[in-house]
């Protein structure tokens, strides 16, 4: 079937089997190597992309699901303001993430920043917990989230003080 969708801000069209996994589509057809198809069953979260603005694991999204939708991979996310904020927060927390989870964690932080989530919300630990990589300390990742979200909160609530 022909699948038309928006990928990293560009209209794209691709011939694919309806049940082909989005991760394969992105890696093999569009050469988006930030998307890692590791576990293939939605457990490790290293293939995280934003589908219609929400974080999803591309390994369990069938190709037909992205028809007419907007998909953002780390390559597209790199051009956003949220990416810069996420990168700064990771640096501030002293994190040097590996090449396998860097994209997923950065996008997760970016998503939290964009949606104004407070650090105390369960959603923060929950979203970060959906990505599993053994390269970094969990406490440091939470620290990075705290830095990223504190900045956002400061901006929002500072006016009211």
């Amino acid at each position: 079937m022909t699948i038309d969708f928006i990928l990293n801000g560009e209209d794209v069209s691709v011939q694919a089997e309806p049940m082909e996994r989005l991760v394969d589509l992105l890696r093999e057809r569009f050469k988006l190597h930030s998307v890692i198809g590791d576990c293939g069953v939605g457990l490790c979260g290293k293939c995280l992309v934003l589908l219609e603005g929400k974080p999803v694991n591309a390994c369990i999204v069938p190709a037909f699901r992205v028809r007419g939708a907007e998909v953002v991979s780390y390559e597209g996310f790199c051009n956003t303001e949220e990416h810069d904020k996420a990168r700064q927060a990771l640096e501030k927390a002293g994190l040097d993430l590996c090449a396998f989870c860097k994209g997923a964690y950065s996008m997760a932080l970016g998503y939290l920043i964009e949606h104004g989530v407070r650090f105390e919300d369960e959603a923060v630990a929950e979203l970060l917990s959906s990505i599993h990589c053994s390269c970094s300390a969990p406490s440091a990742l939470l620290e990075a989230a705290r830095f990223a979200l504190a900045e956002k909160e400061g901006g929002r609530y500072a006016r009211g003080r």
């Binding site: 576990c39 069953v41 457990l43 630990a125 970060l128 917990s129 599993h132 969990p138 990742l141």
Partner: peptide, 12 residues
């Protein structure tokens, strides 16, 4: 993969 479940960030 389904029976081997390393602790997640929220469980640490």
């Amino acid at each position: 993969l389904f029976s081997y479940a390393p602790l997640r960030i929220q469980d640490i």
